[in-house]
Amino acid sequence: MSDSRVTWSKYSSLQALYPLAGRLIPWCAGAAVLFMAAGLYLGFFVAPTDFQQGEAYRIIFVHVPAAWMSMFLYVMMALWAGLGLGLKARPSFMMAQAIAPTGAIFTFLALLTGALWGKPTWGAWWVWDARLTSELILLFLYLGVMLLHASIDDLRRADRASALFALVGVVNVPIIYFSVRWWNTLHQGASVSMTAAPKMAATMLTAMLLMAIGFWLYSMAVILMRLRCVILERNSQPRWNQSAVEPGVKEIRA
Protein backbone atom coordinates (compact mmCIF):
# COMPACT_ATOMS: atom_id res chain seq x y z
CA MET A 1 0.00 0.00 0.00
CA SER A 2 1.66 3.21 -1.10
CA ASP A 3 0.87 6.18 1.10
CA SER A 4 0.69 8.59 -1.82
CA ARG A 5 -2.43 6.86 -3.07
CA VAL A 6 -4.21 7.10 0.26
CA THR A 7 -7.37 9.14 -0.17
CA TRP A 8 -10.21 10.00 2.16
CA SER A 9 -12.57 7.57 0.51
CA LYS A 10 -10.07 4.85 1.13
CA TYR A 11 -9.99 5.62 4.84
CA SER A 12 -13.74 5.64 4.99
CA SER A 13 -13.67 1.98 4.14
CA LEU A 14 -13.38 -0.24 7.13
CA GLN A 15 -10.55 -2.47 6.00
CA ALA A 16 -8.27 0.57 6.05
CA LEU A 17 -9.74 2.10 9.20
CA TYR A 18 -9.20 -0.97 11.37
CA PRO A 19 -5.39 -1.24 11.06
CA LEU A 20 -4.99 2.56 11.00
CA ALA A 21 -6.77 2.81 14.35
CA GLY A 22 -4.60 -0.02 15.62
CA ARG A 23 -1.44 1.85 14.69
CA LEU A 24 -2.59 5.10 16.31
CA ILE A 25 -3.62 3.59 19.67
CA PRO A 26 -0.14 2.99 21.20
CA TRP A 27 1.02 6.50 20.30
CA CYS A 28 -2.05 8.14 21.82
CA ALA A 29 -1.89 5.95 24.92
CA GLY A 30 1.84 6.53 25.42
CA ALA A 31 1.51 10.28 24.99
CA ALA A 32 -1.52 10.30 27.31
CA VAL A 33 0.49 8.62 30.08
CA LEU A 34 3.35 11.09 29.63
CA PHE A 35 1.11 14.17 29.68
CA MET A 36 -0.89 12.96 32.68
CA ALA A 37 2.30 12.10 34.59
CA ALA A 38 3.70 15.57 33.88
CA GLY A 39 0.37 17.18 34.83
CA LEU A 40 0.14 15.23 38.10
CA TYR A 41 3.73 16.05 39.02
CA LEU A 42 3.20 19.74 38.34
CA GLY A 43 -0.22 19.70 39.99
CA PHE A 44 0.87 18.05 43.22
CA PHE A 45 4.50 19.03 43.64
CA VAL A 46 5.03 22.34 41.87
CA ALA A 47 1.70 24.18 41.87
CA PRO A 48 1.28 26.28 45.04
CA THR A 49 -1.55 26.20 47.58
CA ASP A 50 -4.57 28.32 46.70
CA PHE A 51 -5.16 31.48 48.74
CA GLN A 52 -8.81 30.76 49.54
CA GLN A 53 -9.34 27.01 49.10
CA GLY A 54 -6.09 25.60 50.41
CA GLU A 55 -5.28 22.16 48.99
CA ALA A 56 -8.90 21.35 48.09
CA TYR A 57 -8.50 23.31 44.85
CA ARG A 58 -6.22 20.54 43.49
CA ILE A 59 -9.38 18.66 42.49
CA ILE A 60 -9.45 21.17 39.61
CA PHE A 61 -6.73 19.12 37.89
CA VAL A 62 -9.20 16.28 37.23
CA HIS A 63 -12.48 18.15 37.44
CA VAL A 64 -11.95 20.75 34.73
CA PRO A 65 -10.28 18.41 32.17
CA ALA A 66 -13.07 15.85 32.73
CA ALA A 67 -15.74 18.52 32.32
CA TRP A 68 -14.08 19.88 29.18
CA MET A 69 -13.86 16.39 27.68
CA SER A 70 -17.51 15.66 28.54
CA MET A 71 -18.61 18.64 26.44
CA PHE A 72 -16.00 18.26 23.69
CA LEU A 73 -16.75 14.57 23.18
CA TYR A 74 -20.48 15.27 22.96
CA VAL A 75 -19.88 17.81 20.19
CA MET A 76 -17.59 15.30 18.45
CA MET A 77 -20.19 12.55 18.78
CA ALA A 78 -22.90 14.84 17.37
CA LEU A 79 -20.60 15.86 14.51
CA TRP A 80 -19.92 12.26 13.50
CA ALA A 81 -23.62 11.49 13.92
CA GLY A 82 -24.56 14.41 11.65
CA LEU A 83 -21.93 13.38 9.12
CA GLY A 84 -23.29 9.85 9.21
CA LEU A 85 -26.84 11.05 8.59
CA GLY A 86 -25.75 13.38 5.79
CA LEU A 87 -23.39 11.01 3.98
CA LYS A 88 -25.18 7.78 4.94
CA ALA A 89 -21.71 6.62 5.95
CA ARG A 90 -21.42 3.67 8.29
CA PRO A 91 -17.92 4.51 9.63
CA SER A 92 -19.22 7.90 10.86
CA PHE A 93 -21.99 6.20 12.84
CA MET A 94 -19.42 3.80 14.26
CA MET A 95 -17.27 6.73 15.42
CA ALA A 96 -20.29 8.26 17.16
CA GLN A 97 -21.05 4.91 18.78
CA ALA A 98 -17.44 4.60 19.92
CA ILE A 99 -17.35 8.07 21.47
CA ALA A 100 -20.53 7.89 23.58
CA PRO A 101 -19.37 5.65 26.50
CA THR A 102 -16.12 7.60 26.99
CA GLY A 103 -18.07 10.84 27.01
CA ALA A 104 -20.50 9.41 29.54
CA ILE A 105 -17.62 8.34 31.81
CA PHE A 106 -16.07 11.81 31.71
CA THR A 107 -19.46 13.39 32.45
CA PHE A 108 -19.87 11.09 35.44
CA LEU A 109 -16.35 11.97 36.62
CA ALA A 110 -16.97 15.70 36.20
CA LEU A 111 -20.12 15.40 38.35
CA LEU A 112 -18.47 13.21 40.98
CA THR A 113 -15.29 15.28 41.35
CA GLY A 114 -17.50 18.38 41.35
CA ALA A 115 -19.47 17.02 44.30
CA LEU A 116 -16.22 16.16 46.09
CA TRP A 117 -15.02 19.70 45.48
CA GLY A 118 -18.31 21.38 46.36
CA LYS A 119 -18.67 19.77 49.77
CA PRO A 120 -15.51 21.24 51.35
CA THR A 121 -15.66 24.60 49.55
CA TRP A 122 -19.33 25.56 49.10
CA GLY A 123 -20.61 23.41 51.93
CA ALA A 124 -22.88 21.22 49.76
CA TRP A 125 -22.36 18.09 47.64
CA TRP A 126 -24.99 19.16 45.17
CA VAL A 127 -27.11 22.18 44.38
CA TRP A 128 -29.65 22.54 41.58
CA ASP A 129 -27.99 25.48 39.92
CA ALA A 130 -27.92 25.91 36.13
CA ARG A 131 -24.35 24.62 35.64
CA LEU A 132 -24.72 21.45 37.68
CA THR A 133 -28.19 20.65 36.37
CA SER A 134 -27.22 21.08 32.71
CA GLU A 135 -24.17 18.84 33.22
CA LEU A 136 -26.43 16.19 34.78
CA ILE A 137 -28.69 16.47 31.71
CA LEU A 138 -25.57 15.83 29.58
CA LEU A 139 -25.06 12.52 31.39
CA PHE A 140 -28.66 11.54 30.66
CA LEU A 141 -28.21 12.54 27.00
CA TYR A 142 -25.16 10.26 26.69
CA LEU A 143 -27.04 7.42 28.37
CA GLY A 144 -30.04 8.10 26.13
CA VAL A 145 -27.94 7.87 22.97
CA MET A 146 -26.38 4.60 24.15
CA LEU A 147 -29.65 3.04 25.30
CA LEU A 148 -31.47 4.04 22.11
CA HIS A 149 -28.73 2.43 20.02
CA ALA A 150 -28.75 -0.72 22.09
CA SER A 151 -32.53 -1.06 22.11
CA ILE A 152 -33.03 -1.14 18.31
CA ASP A 153 -32.11 -4.44 16.66
CA ASP A 154 -31.82 -3.19 13.10
CA LEU A 155 -28.36 -1.61 13.04
CA ARG A 156 -29.13 0.95 10.34
CA ARG A 157 -32.20 2.18 12.19
CA ALA A 158 -30.31 2.15 15.50
CA ASP A 159 -27.57 4.28 13.94
CA ARG A 160 -29.98 6.80 12.49
CA ALA A 161 -32.22 7.09 15.54
CA SER A 162 -29.36 7.53 18.02
CA ALA A 163 -27.61 9.97 15.66
CA LEU A 164 -30.75 12.10 15.52
CA PHE A 165 -31.04 11.96 19.32
CA ALA A 166 -27.36 12.97 19.68
CA LEU A 167 -27.87 15.92 17.31
CA VAL A 168 -30.92 17.16 19.18
CA GLY A 169 -29.03 17.00 22.48
CA VAL A 170 -26.19 19.16 21.23
CA VAL A 171 -28.10 22.34 22.21
CA ASN A 172 -27.32 21.44 25.81
CA VAL A 173 -23.56 21.96 25.33
CA PRO A 174 -23.60 25.77 24.90
CA ILE A 175 -26.11 25.91 27.75
CA ILE A 176 -23.63 24.13 30.04
CA TYR A 177 -20.77 26.32 28.92
CA PHE A 178 -22.52 29.67 29.20
CA SER A 179 -24.77 28.84 32.17
CA VAL A 180 -22.40 30.55 34.60
CA ARG A 181 -22.64 33.74 32.54
CA TRP A 182 -26.32 33.73 31.63
CA TRP A 183 -27.69 33.06 35.09
CA ASN A 184 -26.30 33.59 38.55
CA THR A 185 -25.11 30.20 39.75
CA LEU A 186 -23.30 28.88 42.78
CA HIS A 187 -20.68 27.50 40.40
CA GLN A 188 -17.94 30.02 39.73
CA GLY A 189 -17.25 31.42 36.27
CA ALA A 190 -14.64 30.19 33.81
CA SER A 191 -11.03 30.65 34.90
CA VAL A 192 -9.77 29.99 31.39
CA SER A 193 -11.50 31.46 28.37
CA MET A 194 -10.74 32.65 24.87
CA THR A 195 -11.52 36.26 25.62
CA ALA A 196 -9.80 37.02 28.92
CA ALA A 197 -6.45 36.39 30.55
CA PRO A 198 -6.45 33.22 32.69
CA LYS A 199 -7.42 33.82 36.29
CA MET A 200 -4.94 31.26 37.62
CA ALA A 201 -1.33 31.22 38.67
CA ALA A 202 0.92 30.05 35.79
CA THR A 203 1.97 26.67 37.26
CA MET A 204 -1.62 25.81 38.20
CA LEU A 205 -2.75 26.62 34.67
CA THR A 206 0.08 24.62 33.08
CA ALA A 207 -0.72 21.58 35.24
CA MET A 208 -4.40 21.80 34.32
CA LEU A 209 -3.69 22.15 30.60
CA LEU A 210 -1.25 19.19 30.68
CA MET A 211 -3.93 17.08 32.34
CA ALA A 212 -6.48 18.24 29.75
CA ILE A 213 -4.17 17.24 26.87
CA GLY A 214 -3.56 13.93 28.63
CA PHE A 215 -7.31 13.31 28.98
CA TRP A 216 -7.79 14.20 25.31
CA LEU A 217 -5.09 11.73 24.21
CA TYR A 218 -6.54 9.08 26.52
CA SER A 219 -9.96 9.65 24.93
CA MET A 220 -8.46 9.22 21.45
CA ALA A 221 -6.84 5.94 22.51
CA VAL A 222 -9.93 4.38 24.12
CA ILE A 223 -12.27 5.63 21.39
CA LEU A 224 -10.07 4.03 18.73
CA MET A 225 -9.97 0.84 20.79
CA ARG A 226 -13.75 0.83 20.96
CA LEU A 227 -14.00 1.66 17.25
CA ARG A 228 -11.97 -1.48 16.47
CA CYS A 229 -14.32 -3.53 18.66
CA VAL A 230 -17.36 -2.05 16.92
CA ILE A 231 -15.90 -2.73 13.45
CA LEU A 232 -15.16 -6.36 14.33
CA GLU A 233 -18.51 -6.93 16.02
CA ARG A 234 -20.44 -5.49 13.09
CA ASN A 235 -18.31 -7.45 10.68
CA SER A 236 -19.36 -10.65 12.43
CA GLN A 237 -23.04 -9.87 11.98
CA PRO A 238 -24.51 -11.92 9.13
CA ARG A 239 -26.45 -9.09 7.47
CA TRP A 240 -23.30 -7.12 7.34
CA ASN A 241 -21.31 -9.84 5.66
CA GLN A 242 -23.81 -9.84 2.80
CA SER A 243 -23.02 -6.25 1.90
CA ALA A 244 -20.90 -5.32 -1.12
CA VAL A 245 -17.75 -4.49 0.81
CA GLU A 246 -16.57 -7.58 2.53
CA PRO A 247 -13.11 -7.33 3.97
CA GLY A 248 -11.67 -10.71 4.69
CA VAL A 249 -10.63 -11.14 8.26
CA LYS A 250 -7.09 -12.00 7.29
CA GLU A 251 -6.68 -8.63 5.58
CA ILE A 252 -8.17 -6.50 8.30
CA ARG A 253 -6.21 -8.10 11.08
CA ALA A 254 -3.08 -6.09 10.49
Binding site: G54, A56, I105, F108, L109, L116, P120
Partner: peptide, 22 residues
Protein backbone atom coordinates in the same frame (compact mmCIF):
# COMPACT_ATOMS: atom_id res chain seq x y z
CA UNK B 1 -3.74 17.52 51.68
CA UNK B 2 -4.23 20.19 54.29
CA UNK B 3 -7.24 18.36 55.74
CA UNK B 4 -8.89 17.83 52.35
CA UNK B 5 -7.21 14.45 51.70
CA UNK B 6 -10.48 12.51 51.50
CA UNK B 7 -11.98 14.77 48.83
CA UNK B 8 -8.79 15.07 46.79
CA UNK B 9 -7.83 11.38 46.83
CA UNK B 10 -11.33 10.06 46.16
CA UNK B 11 -11.51 12.39 43.14
CA UNK B 12 -8.19 11.29 41.71
CA UNK B 13 -8.66 7.66 42.70
CA UNK B 14 -12.07 7.29 41.07
CA UNK B 15 -10.82 8.95 37.90
CA UNK B 16 -7.87 6.54 37.74
CA UNK B 17 -10.13 3.53 38.44
CA UNK B 18 -12.57 4.54 35.71
CA UNK B 19 -9.75 4.88 33.19
CA UNK B 20 -8.15 1.55 34.08
CA UNK B 21 -11.54 -0.18 34.02
CA UNK B 22 -12.40 1.33 30.63
Amino acid sequence: MGGYGFYVWVSFGTTALCMVWE
